[in-house]
């Protein structure tokens, strides 16, 4: 009986909170053009960053700190999961082997998914999608291998240093910007070297956005697969 009382009380409380939030949202009508800083971005994104995709330009160039924070969050997630599920000796405990279709399919598809993932984050500044979806796609590639094979494990000795190197690379790019252009995360490829200004809209444009997105793609890929690996391997009880 009490749980019904609790549920109804919860519903009432949430309705009141919902009504309050709705009143707040009514002050921000849907679909109106209230852009202030956004308008500045849209007008000068091509000139100042050389990227066609305004979102990726903002993510990497204008609001670089957020993405730096973002990459750290993912790094913390993988380290945290690693630390929490750390056991002295760990081994895969999957019991049922993937079906023939799954095994052969995953072996065949693995390189193509990887290639598709790299395509996503290399063309970040042109087509939608950047480091994060690219990295996630690479992680799904490894995920499929985990599904298919009982004893498959990602090469730890390669992935952990790669993850650290990619992160360091990102910060190093920022520090080089600090050294050259005296601002941290300064786009020294586009602003000082004026590289790729000619072929706007093609691959070699967009300043250091593709460089950073490759680093982020590798990092996200290795980290998410690291998380999947920590989850799927359990302690070996002698």
């Amino acid at each position: 009986m009490v749980s019904v009382l609790k549920r109804s009380l919860a519903i009432i409380t949430l309705l009141i909170i919902g009504y309050w939030l709705a009143q707040g949202l009514a002050g921000v009508p849907f679909g109106q053009d209230r852009m202030l800083v956004g308008k500045y971005y849209l007008e000068n994104v091509k000139a100042q960053t050389g990227a066609v995709n305004a979102v990726t330009a903002i993510v990497v160039n204008y609001r670089g700190f957020d993405t730096l924070g973002e990459v750290t969050v993912l790094f913390i997630a993988s380290t945290g999961v690693g630390a929490l599920l750390w056991r002295r000796k760990k081994k895969r405990t999957a019991k049922t082997e993937g079906s023939v279709v799954l095994r052969t399919g995953s072996e065949l598809l693995f390189p193509f998914i990887l290639m598709f993932g790299t395509y996503i984050f290399i063309h970040g500044h042109l087509t939608p999608g950047g480091g994060f979806p690219g990295g996630a796609t690479i992680a799904t590639a490894f995920l499929i291998l985990y599904m298919a094979f009982v004893d498959y494990e990602i090469p730890h000795r390669l992935f952990e240093p790669l993850e650290g190197l990619a992160g360091m690379g990102y910060v190093l790019v920022g520090l080089i910007g600090l050294a050259i252009g005296s601002y941290f995360l300064f786009d020294w490829i586009w602003q000082t070297w004026h590289w790729g200004a000619a072929n706007l809209g093609r691959l070699f444009s967009g300043g250091f956005i593709p460089v950073i997105y490759t680093l982020i793609g590798l990092k996200v890929g290795t980290e998410l697969s690291g998380i999947v690996d920590s989850m799927l391997t359990e302690e070996v009880r002698e």
Binding site: A10, T13, L14, I16, I17, Y19, W20, Q23, G24
Partner: peptide, 13 residues
């Protein structure tokens, strides 16, 4: 937490 939100809501509403 929900109670505090409720207090804020009641004041807001």
């Amino acid at each position: 937490l929900a109670i505090i939100l409720l207090i804020l809501a009641i004041w807001g509403v």
